[in-house]
Simulated assay, not measured.
Amino acid sequence: MARGGKSLILLTQGDPAGIGPEISLKAWLMRKEAGLPPFAILAEPGHLRHLAQSLSWDVPIAETDLSGATSVFNRALPVIPLNLDMGGPVRPGHPDAAHAPAIIASIEKAVRHVQAGEAAALVTNPIAKHVLYEAGFSHPGHTEFLASLAKEPGGTAPHPVMMLWSETLAVVPVTVHIPLKDVPQALTTDLIVTTGRLVARDLQARFGIAHPRLAVAGLNPHAGEHGALGAEDEAIVAPAIEILRKEGIAAEGPLPADTMFHARARKNYDAALAMYHDQALIPIKTIAFDEGVNVTLGLPFIRTSPDHGTAFDIAGKGIARPDSLIAAIKLAARLARGGQP
């Protein structure tokens, strides 16, 4: 729970030309049937009002500050105005680098509010990194930007860990957005240990799991087949698991990734550590494509996000499903309660 007992969940607008704004509107429309807690969005009220009208959705927009957001939530979508020029008209499906300052400002202001205890948790709508890069954005991605904003003056940025979570499976890629050919060089025992520690810590502190169980995938087919299919599993992965065990963390592996994700196997762990991006994301997007949530571990505040992108190809058509955003809002509120459902 945020300081001062605040329970409001704060959303960023994401890329205004993507589906973030419309799934936020739709989530508000579904607030009762989905059992959503009060949430507000940092955005330009005029853009959201125009979008709702263009879709013929009855979503009243209430311009408010954080202190008044909860009280208006049941009758209108609370919008915390950015008070910024959007840099030009917003055309759904047409990303524009002129929108970058507003996109970035929404994230920066939301982080400040959550860090100040004025909201319980942060839910970020999707952004398109290429749009921000055109405007001089210097961070590799959304998560790294959040880590930089979390840095204490004179300190170092925290090490963020990406978890993809659903009610049926939680996965963590140890290496993330790098080419597959670079994974063996990037994968180290220290990186696996650091990731495993953070996952175990946040599963305890935020998800309320007293004794987290980690399943650690091997890098190679059949976890290397005792070295016959690659030396990395014995030389890099197995030593990391041994270190985690000595620290009291229940870690098993290296396990063949092809047998880790069926229903019986999933009962034996709380989170799976995968060695590279697709090894983690293929199973969860197969099992829980619409309900998966991106959770950033290792930050001093709670951050969740829908497990999908901006979907410019369908933006503004009113057909984007809000399931993942709804799941992200509900999980953010759950984590703010210390993992209590």
Rank of each mutant, 00 (worst) to 15 (best):
R321I: 11
H222C: 12
D307K: 13
G224W: 01
I243F: 02
N294A: 08
A288G: 13
I282S: 13
I287N: 08
A250D: 15
I302N: 07
G230R: 00
G248S: 07
I319G: 03
G298V: 08
A257D: 03
I249H: 08
A288W: 13
G292C: 10
E234Q: 15
S324G: 06
N268Q: 15
A274F: 15
V295M: 09
I236P: 05
L281H: 07
E242F: 02
K317R: 15
I236E: 01
T296A: 03
G253D: 01
E247Y: 06
E247P: 11
P306G: 02
G224H: 00
I302D: 08
A265G: 10
A238R: 15
P239M: 11
A257V: 14
H226D: 14
I282H: 05
D258Y: 05
R264F: 12
Q279P: 10
G309L: 07
K246V: 09
I284T: 08
A263Q: 09
K267P: 00
A251V: 10
D307G: 12
I319C: 11
L325T: 05
P283I: 05
L297R: 01
S305P: 09
A280S: 08
I287Q: 15
G248Q: 12
G248T: 11
F301R: 02
P322R: 04
E291Q: 13
Y269F: 15
I236N: 07
D290E: 15
E232Y: 03
A250V: 12
H262C: 06
E252D: 14
H222N: 01
P239T: 06
G227V: 01
P322Y: 00
A228C: 04
I282D: 03
V293M: 01
H262Q: 13
D307A: 13
H226R: 14
I241P: 02
V293Q: 02
A280D: 14
T296H: 11
H222T: 09
L297V: 06
H277Q: 04
F289S: 05
Y276T: 09
T259A: 09
N294Q: 10
G227I: 10
A250H: 14
